[in-house]
Nucleic acid binder design. Structure first.
Length: 116
DNA sequence: AACTTGACAAAAA
DNA sequence: GTTTTTGCCAAGT
């Protein structure tokens, strides 16, 4: 169902530059609790052209362990790491300090997103 | 309808 | 810290 993909893509667009979010966190915010794996799957289908006229920053989504989910050394891995470093996120190996870089949405943003 | 597949996650070891 | 095991559930065959 493409309905869910859109919810997820739009939620990912809310992550500010320089911050990251986990797959589970995105699932929750998108109103799809327990569907972290769906988030991962659908990010693989993100249109390069973007959604609603904006790009979807798929590279700001990492796993709950605080690591990039692609195998180290793969093309995807390097690309994601590069994107993150471009916006000042510190990546050591595959690891990112969630304590420092995890997105913590404030109440205002949540209200804005309450329309489903 | 049955079975497989994930860019996952939490708990256990 | 690490790896393994289990549970998860929409989507695609």
């Amino acid at each position: 169902m493409k309905e869910n993909y859109l919810k997820i893509w739009r939620t990912v667009q809310l992550i500010p530059a320089g911050k990251v979010a986990s797959y589970g966190q995105i699932a929750d915010l998108a109103g799809l609790p327990g569907r972290a794996r769906l988030v991962g799957k659908c990010l693989g289908y993100v249109p390069d052209s973007g959604v609603d006229g904006k790009l979807v920053p798929w590279f700001r989504v990492i796993n709950s362990a605080g690591k990039i989910s692609f195998p180290i050394g793969t093309e995807h891995f390097e690309k994601q790491k590069h994107h993150l470093q471009e916006e000042q996120v510190v990546v050591i190996g595959a690891r990112i300090k969630l304590k420092e870089f995890q997105w913590q949405p404030d109440l205002g943003e949540l209200l804005f997103k309450l329309e489903y």
